[in-house]
């Protein structure tokens, strides 16, 4: 067998087999939960979702994530992706307008709509919203939960994740964690 075949097979095993196994093994040992996908469980041990993956919310008492183009109804974690609509595509304008109109229905006092509230995320699974987006949803959620807007605003502000290392990225709020904490702090009367 010539060298070019031998080295190909050897590297096939080394890079395709040994290397990923090493990283997975070490990752599992050192950071088990993260290696498994940062899954969040309820008190019964049932998986609710991943802290890193957006899931669909449409009830008024929950904060809603960004619009999603992943899968037919969005938030499909087996089919990530964006809308891929061009800025000049009329379809994009129509969609954003519909989303903006809905947002204004929830909060008639809303001035300019935060951009992340009405546009599709890149992955369709963006777990975060901007603080402005969350604040724009406060009137609706507060009303549904019977909280004052002031109370809820304070609650939201506590959940703002700052820029990484104080500099990188943008301030944001993880929607699933916010909603979970909200349920814990102020459970809905059934």
């Amino acid at each position: 067998m010539p060298a070019w075949i031998r080295i190909s097979i050897l590297l096939f095993l080394l890079c395709g087999g040994v290397y990923p196994a090493l990283v997975v093994g070490a990752g599992q040992l050192l950071f088990h939960d993260k290696a498994q996908g940062s899954i969040i469980y309820d008190k019964d041990g049932n998986a609710i979702g991943s802290a890193l993956i957006a899931q669909a919310f449409d009830k008024d008492q929950y904060f809603h994530p960004r619009p999603s183009a992943a899968g037919a109804d969005g938030y499909d974690a087996t089919s990530s992706g964006g809308s891929n609509l061009a800025p000049t595509n009329q379809k994009l304008i129509d969609q954003v307008k519909a989303n903006a109109d809905a947002a204004k229905q929830d909060d008639p006092a809303l001035g300019e709509v935060p951009a992340d509230m009405v546009t599709n995320s890149g992955s369709g699974l963006d777990p975060d919203i901007s603080p402005e987006n969350a604040l724009a949803q406060v009137p609706r959620v507060a009303k549904a939960r019977g909280m004052t807007e002031q109370q809820l605003t304070g609650f939201v502000n506590q959940h703002v994740i700052g820029r990484d290392l104080g500099i990188f990225g943008e301030p944001r709020i993880n929607v699933l964690r916010l909603n979970l904490d909200l349920d814990a702090a102020k459970p809905m009367q059934k």
Binding site: R66, K97, E112, A115, G122
Partner: peptide, 18 residues
């Protein structure tokens, strides 16, 4: 159509990155 330009073009982008 009333969308804030403060965040820039957010279609297809992730909030955490900006």
């Amino acid at each position: 159509i009333g969308v804030s330009a403060a965040q820039g073009n957010m279609e297809g982008k992730e909030v955490r990155f900006g």
